[in-house]
């Protein structure tokens, strides 16, 4: 892959989001830090409910109100903290500089408008384009995501398109305003495997052409291996390990990362039963003292019960920036063994 990776474009520091519910205040995002460079793809991986999507929504400041609220941290984008931006300023960022593709293509297009109408809406919101040429820009955007015969398709309604096509249209809307960052929240989960790989290839091509940075949210390690340069593993609202994709795959330092990798079925190993991590993640309103993974961790020690481990850098063959929140890393050569 001929990719040029540049300066850091998006830096999320200690982001915290609260959710006010009947059972009390929860923190689905509890101190997440991420870093994304230009032209890079960052994968966020973790099991359901670990705060992946909420992190994405918090970055854009569109958490579901009135229940949820971003309460702390910074979102540095091109040197400015997005959390200090007004709603008006954020509207220019959303879809303009940072855009997002949602999970379900079946419902992410408004059923009452044509495809063309929905693509032109995004363009009209962010780009200074004369009204008359809006449609030709929309057609260009659709052509960029390989929608066949876009001149005809712009007149179609969402129900006239297949799931894969709809997801491409969502993609066209997301890239139509030349964003710097694209947040893709499980964009292929609802698609067939063949359509999935086409879509991923398309994303990579667009990235190579435009130098787009992508945050790819998924729970599929296959996609991570395919798409990402760096990976952040999330557990219970926090990043527990992050680093270059090869390092995470080959030398995972956090027991949770290893457990996730073990849960992926493989063809070359014969196993009777698929591995599953014992136990449940801690409830959002009832976080234990110490490390949140200790109840499920085969390597838990006494001090794991009292203190949440800090991010400790790992000595690495594959590159720098590999950190994990585990006391085991005090031995800098620690690599979580296969169980």
């Amino acid at each position: 892959m001929a990719k040029i990776i540049g300066e850091t474009i998006l830096q999320v520091e200690n982001l915290q989001t609260e959710l006010h519910t009947n059972i009390g205040v929860q923190r689905p995002v509890d101190g997440v830090s991420l870093s994304l460079r230009q032209g890079e793809t960052l994968g966020i991986v973790g099991e359901s409910g670990c705060g992946k999507s909420m992190t994405a929504l918090s970055i854009l400041g569109v958490v579901p109100k009135p229940a949820a609220q971003v309460v702390g941290g910074r979102v540095m984008f091109n040197g400015q903290d997005l959390r200090t931006f007004s709603e008006q300023q954020m509207r220019r960022i959303r879809g303009g500089s940072i855009s997002m593709v949602l999970q379900d293509p079946q419902t992410s297009l408004n059923p009452v408008y044509t495809i063309g109408g929905q693509v032109t809406e995004a363009i009209a919101l962010h780009r200074d384009v004369p009204r008359r040429s809006l449609m030709s820009h929309a057609i260009d955007a659709l052509r960029q995501v390989r929608v066949a015969a876009p001149e005809q398709r712009v007149k179609d309604y969402p129900h006239q398109m297949s799931g894969g096509m709809k997801q491409r249209v969502s993609g066209a809307i997301a890239i139509s305003c030349d964003p710097h960052v694209l947040i893709a929240d499980e964009p292929t989960t609802a698609l067939d495997v063949t359509i999935q790989s086409q879509y991923l290839r398309l994303l990579r091509e667009i990235q190579e052409k435009t130098g787009l940075s992508i945050i790819f949210i998924t729970h599929d390690f296959g996609i991570i291996a395919n798409m990402c340069d760096t990976v952040a593993v999330m557990y219970a609202g926090r990043v527990v390990e992050s680093g270059p994709v090869r390092a995470i795959f080959d030398e995972p330092r956090h027991p949770y990362t290893r457990a996730l990798l073990n849960s992926v079925p493989t063809m070359d190993r014969h196993v009777k039963r698929l591995y599953s991590i014992p136990g449940q993640p801690p409830a959002l309103w009832d976080r234990p003292a110490g490390c949140w993974y200790r109840n499920r961790c085969p390597f838990a020690e006494p001090r794991c019960e009292t203190q949440y481990p800090p991010a400790i850098a790992a000595k690495n063959t594959a590159g720098s920036n590999h950190v994990a929140n585990c006391w085991k890393l005090e031995d800098s050569t620690w690599i979580t063994p296969k169980s």
Partner: peptide
């Protein structure tokens, strides 16, 4: 619905 969320992340007021 997702299309409302999508409009929101696309910067609609």
């Amino acid at each position: 619905r997702d299309y409302v969320a999508r409009a929101r992340v696309a910067g609609a007021s």
